[in-house]
């Protein structure tokens, strides 16, 4: 399982802090996220992609929007707003 952590607007919209999904890539994880949280669709994830201004930090470290990023058991996808800084 992969854990997706939500902060800020994403957390407010989804009404939850974490979601567990079965995913082998970032693209898979985002499809599962959109399905689990329709409130995020269009604004934060859009058809399995990240909406403009959104990225992820894989395990909280490097930041990417590359949908092909492979994910494995225990990985954590931290959803980050690109204007995280102000």
């Amino acid at each position: 399982m992969v854990t997706i952590e939500l902060y800020g607007v994403a957390r407010l919209r989804a009404g939850r802090e974490v979601i567990e999904v079965d995913a082998r890539s970032l693209g898979d994880a985002l499809v599962a996220l959109g399905a689990a949280c329709p409130a995020l669709e269009r604004v934060i994830v859009a058809g399995g992609r990240l909406a403009p201004g959104w990225l992820v930090a894989l395990n909280g470290a490097q930041i990417t929007a590359d949908l092909a990023t492979p994910l494995g058991e225990g990985d954590v996808v931290v959803l980050v707003s690109a204007d995280a800084g102000g």
């Binding site: 952590e5 470290a61 707003s81």
Partner: peptide, 10 residues
Amino acid sequence: ANLSTFNRLA
């Protein structure tokens, strides 16, 4: 809103 994200990203 920055605080929790920044904390997570260390």
